[in-house]
Amino acid sequence: MLVAHLDPLAASIFSLMAIASLLLAFVMLGSQWLNNYLYAFAAESWVIAILSATVGLYSGYPELYLIAALTALFRGLFLPYLLWRIIRRLNVTREIHEILRPSSALVVGALCVVFALAVGYRVGQSLGLAATVAVLALTVMLSMKLIGFLMLAVRHEAISQILGLLVLENGVFLGAQILVPGMPTLIEIVILFDLLIVVACFGVLVQLLLAHAGTTSSLELNRLVG
């Protein structure tokens, strides 16, 4: 078990990375401009890639370097590029349809983190890992899930929803690197490829939405009810 006896330097680096990516999630939550949103996502992916490499260094799983490289390449460069292209083609620069203003969204996001901390601490305690980086990893994992769902709920632009989904998965990725660095490489690589397909599908679908439903805001997708 890596997290149980980790040397203090590694633990601090892991914590730093985890908190940095949580902060970037808040940047995404608080920004109205889709471009900033996208840059924050790319930065978050790079932080996760660096984290993978660091975990690889300390845990002795060399395949994590590969994962790190692929994460940086796919999630840090390729996905943001695809999304950037979609944004440019759609000609939307900011989220117009938000239900919650960014400031209120930040407050709700903070509450989510508190809840995640409570759950993470409880689980950590029951495993006897309450004083380790595991609690932080769990907290960040769960709170990024909750923040992702929050983004899906309060944002209505198609791009915001795609980014919300990607934040959901970033959370899992980040936590998994710290908690289960040994999880078979095959699966992690396939999940990376999978994401690529997801975004490609979304790209096609956004085009279809615009062409046939005439909007990319889910607020106006209200034909099907009951």
């Binding site: 899930k145 989904l165 959901l168 899992v172 679908l205 889910s218 997708l221």
Partner: peptide
């Protein structure tokens, strides 16, 4: 197209919980 969009967003969000 509306149904397809709702389908992929809701199910992908759900399935990401299953990944966790």
């Amino acid at each position: 197209v509306e149904a397809a969009w709702k389908y992929i967003i809701i199910v992908s969000a759900g399935i990401s919980l299953a990944l966790l």
